[in-house]
Amino acid sequence: MPFYFQGFPNIIAFKTTSKMINTSKNKFVIPAIPAVLLSMVSVQGGASIAKHLFPILGASGTASLRIGFSAILLLFFFRTNLFALNKKQWVYCLAYGTCLGAMNLVFYLAIKRIPLGLGVTIEFTGPLVLALVGSRKLLDLLWVLLACLGIALIAPWQNNNVDLLGVALALLAGALWAGYIVLGGKVSQIMKSGDAVAVGMIFASALVLPFGIFSGGLAALNVPLLLIGVAVAFLTSAIPFTLEMGALRLLPSKTFGILMSLHPAFGALSGLLFLKEYLSLAQWLSIICVIIASIGATYFSRKER
């Protein structure tokens, strides 16, 4: 899931996103709110397709395929001039891309063991905690408690069917997502956002590709699988990026943030429809708690951006 185009569940991420989006005078055909919803459908649908590849390519092989093709698409989309970057930009992109690649790899390893909807929900807690760190508002304590309740409802000691390692990996992916947000904000201050994402994906590919190779998963590659990999890259990068970029020109970032807080629900529905991943009542309640916490943290943030 997620790298940049898997959505941002809190206001810190939306602020970063707003800085990273190139404004344009071109008219956006799709209305803003449907565009954001379609973006989430595209991302989670792409994640479901990717998960179907796990039995053949493995999680690391699938991550390599998805990130590799995404890097190519982004470089083509932004037409980044790699020779124009200075040393500082390369160093920042290295840190940013490494965190990005690790986040994607770890998340794919997580959803190999646990349902997609739960993986998205648990990962969401990383950026949510980042949004609430340092807050002195009493109301924010409610969102923290709701997020904690959400995790408690799907903790392995509550449900023997939840894989402990899968939960731990999803939590690690959430921590990496928080780091990715922080690094994204820094790198967007010294270079164009599109170039930062494209170059970061190069480093992400360099990190993940060895795992795909040494796992043996990429040995099973053939033309149909390559085409599926391209489709996954489009669904999880090119299409959502285009939709979100257009929507952010028309929507306040707070409204955008509230909408993107629905990602866990879309992940759960995608897992149900495409992967037959049925969740228990407690697991659905967990997803609802995290969504409410994310919406609350976004809506009651200090000021409109």
Rank of each mutant, 00 (worst) to 15 (best):
N81P: 01
I11H: 07
F241A: 13
L209W: 11
R249V: 02
F78K: 03
A178S: 15
F8A: 13
V36I: 14
Y96R: 08
A131D: 07
F78M: 04
A233V: 09
V290C: 11
A268S: 09
P252Q: 15
T298H: 08
V187S: 07
K112I: 03
S135I: 03
F83Y: 04
T255Q: 09
G126N: 00
H52Q: 13
N22Q: 14
V162K: 10
I213P: 09
R79C: 01
K254I: 13
H52V: 12
I21Y: 07
L75D: 12
S280E: 15
I151F: 14
A152G: 11
V208I: 13
L171A: 15
L65H: 02
L57G: 05
G216M: 01
G185I: 00
S270M: 15
Y278V: 08
L285Q: 11
L118M: 14
S188F: 09
F77R: 13
A95R: 04
G185Y: 04
T298A: 11
A265H: 00
L281F: 15
L165N: 14
G267C: 04
A170F: 02
A233C: 08
A268Y: 08
A220L: 06
P2T: 15
I56N: 11
V162D: 12
L130E: 03
L105D: 07
H52P: 02
M1Q: 09
L142P: 00
A247E: 02
A282V: 04
P34W: 02
G117V: 01
D163M: 10
A63T: 11
S261M: 07
A282C: 07
R136T: 13
I181S: 06
P115I: 01
L183W: 04
C289R: 03
V199E: 05
Q283L: 05
C99F: 03
K87T: 11
K88Q: 13
F78H: 09
G184H: 05
L53K: 05
S193N: 08
P9W: 02
L116G: 04
P115Y: 07
K192H: 12
A268M: 01
F3A: 05
G212D: 02
T23Y: 04
G246T: 05
L65S: 02
L183T: 06
K19S: 15
K51H: 12
L145R: 09
I228Y: 05
C93I: 01
A265Y: 00
L176P: 00
L273T: 14
L132G: 03
T80L: 03
S205L: 04
V129A: 12
T98D: 02
S60C: 05
N26R: 13
I292K: 07
A47K: 03
L225V: 08
F203G: 13
Q6N: 07
A204L: 04
G217H: 00
L176Y: 08
P224Q: 09
I287V: 14
N104G: 14
I11A: 07
A110R: 10
L281P: 02
P156C: 02
V187I: 08
K192R: 08
T23G: 05
L53T: 11
S42L: 06
L281M: 12
L146E: 06
F203S: 13
G229A: 05
A59L: 01
Q283R: 04
G257F: 00
K112P: 01
G185M: 04
F107D: 09
L207K: 13
A175W: 13
A178R: 01
S24K: 06
A131L: 03
N160G: 10
R249K: 12
L164D: 14
L207E: 15
V129D: 03
L227C: 11
A233L: 07
W284P: 04
T98E: 02
